[in-house]
Amino acid sequence: SGELYCSLPNPRNVHFESVNMKNVLRWLPPEGTGAGVFYRVKYSVYGVGKWIRKPECKYINRTWCDLSSETSDYEEQYYASVKAFLNGMCSDWIETTRFNPLTDTTIDPPMVSVSSTEKSISIILTAPEKWKRSPEEESVSLLQVYPGLQYNVSVLNKKTKKRWFFSISNTTMVVPWLEPGTAYCVSAQIRVTTPLLHSQFSKEYCISTLKDKTA
């Protein structure tokens, strides 16, 4: 009857990798297997008994499966599971730990734009958007998901190497009393106090203050 004999080693390190709530299931192939391994994926909502197969990840040979759509309700928690197949053999279903999109996602750094006058720099910060199914779908800023979201801003005087740090809640900021004709570099990070989340610092955005016209 073509009954599969499940003695294939299991997929390893089955886990969710989540960035801005784009939730991708990833895993490693079973130990000692090369090419030719195929996988099936299913997922379930915690507290609801049903496992649901993911059709787009049926007999795939890649080792990831995008479950963002299925796990987009961040008021729920989820499990996912993977099974490997090779030459008529199969592995067990291997499950993730319980996944909470709200607390288990990684947040990208904010977008930073800077402008300058003679003695000040203006900084505008934009939080990343939550993953969405299609470009047409309405954008949701992570600021709406995490009302307690704050920004840590670093400003470096390239000449003196002096650096300031600011922690702000709103998205715009002016740094006054700067030296004219001097290069400054700005970098920013997102910090959410509860749940405890923070992004990496963004790359540095450098700009020079205008030269002093009276000099």
Binding site: S44, Y46, G47, V48, G49, K50, E75, E76, Y79
Partner: peptide, 13 residues
Amino acid sequence: KSLSILSYPHSLH
């Protein structure tokens, strides 16, 4: 995995 103490039948939300 099929039962939740806090969220069954409805979410706290």
